[in-house]
Amino acid sequence: MAKDKYDTAILNGIPVHEDASGQAVFDPDAKVHPWRIGKHTKGKLGKPGQIFLTGQNQKVVLVSVEKLAFKDRHDYTPMGRFTKESMDLNQ
Rank of each mutant, 00 (worst) to 15 (best):
D7K: 13
D7I: 11
D7C: 06
T8P: 07
I10W: 07
L11F: 08
G13K: 01
I14F: 06
I14D: 04
I14L: 09
P15R: 11
H17M: 14
H17N: 13
A20H: 08
S21L: 12
G22Y: 14
Q23E: 15
Q23S: 12
V25T: 15
V25L: 09
V25F: 07
V25C: 10
V25W: 06
V25R: 14
F26L: 06
D27Q: 08
D27S: 11
P28D: 11
P28V: 09
P28C: 08
D29R: 11
D29H: 09
D29T: 10
K31D: 13
K31C: 06
V32Q: 10
H33F: 12
H33L: 14
P34H: 01
W35I: 04
W35V: 05
W35Q: 07
W35A: 08
R36V: 02
R36N: 01
I37G: 00
I37A: 03
G38D: 12
K39L: 10
K39V: 04
H40A: 10
T41G: 02
K42N: 03
K42R: 12
K42T: 05
K42P: 00
G43V: 01
G43W: 05
L45N: 01
L45M: 14
G46S: 13
G46P: 09
G46T: 10
K47Q: 14
P48W: 02
P48N: 01
G49H: 02
I51Q: 01
I51W: 05
F52L: 01
F52I: 03
L53H: 01
L53N: 01
T54Y: 02
T54P: 00
T54V: 06
T54F: 00
G55R: 08
G55W: 03
G55H: 00
Q56T: 15
Q56A: 11
Q56D: 11
N57S: 14
N57E: 13
N57G: 03
Q58N: 09
Q58F: 08
K59W: 06
K59A: 14
V60W: 03
L62K: 02
L62Y: 05
V63C: 04
V63N: 01
V63F: 04
V65P: 06
V65K: 13
E66Y: 00
E66R: 09
E66S: 11
E66N: 10
K67L: 10
K67S: 15
K67I: 07
K67H: 12
L68Q: 07
L68G: 03
A69T: 10
A69K: 15
F70M: 11
F70W: 15
F70V: 09
F70P: 04
K71F: 08
K71C: 00
D72R: 13
D72Y: 09
R73S: 05
H74R: 14
H74V: 08
H74C: 03
D75K: 15
D75L: 15
D75Q: 15
D75W: 04
Y76E: 12
T77M: 14
T77F: 09
T77R: 15
T77S: 13
P78A: 08
M79F: 04
M79D: 02
M79T: 04
G80M: 08
G80D: 07
G80W: 08
R81T: 05
F82D: 05
F82Q: 02
F82A: 04
T83A: 05
T83K: 00
T83I: 02
K84Y: 10
K84G: 13
K84S: 14
E85Q: 11
S86L: 03
D88Q: 13
D88E: 14
L89F: 08
L89I: 07
L89G: 04
